[in-house]
Amino acid sequence: MTSRHTAAGQAAQTPALTIDALGRKCPIPIIMLAEQINHVPLNAVVAVLADDPAAFTDIPAWCRLKSHHHVGSHELPQGGWSIHVRRNY
C-alpha cells in the first residue's frame, strides 16, 4: 500500500489537533474525528494517527461525505498514517 501524499503546491499546515487512534479499528478513528473536529477553529487542520488499513480509505471518504477537506496522508515510520483533515464549516 502506497501513501497518498499532500497535493502538490499545497502548503503544509501544522495540525491544530492530533488524534491518536493508533491500534483502534474502524470505525473508531472516524468516530473520534467526527467528535473532535468541532474542537478546532474553521480552516484548522486535524491530524488523525491511525494504523487500521480501513482508515486510509475511510477518512478521505468521510471528508467527501461530510464536505471537509482531506489535505493528505503521510506514512508514519512506525507503521500507519497521519491523515490530515481541514475543517470546512
Partner: peptide, 14 residues
C-alpha cells in the same frame, strides 16, 4: 483488510 474493490473506488469501507 477492507475489500480491495471498495478501496479502489475510494468509498467508505466500514
Amino acid at each position: 483488510r477492507p475489500s480491495h474493490v471498495l478501496e479502489a473506488m475510494g468509498v467508505l469501507t466500514h
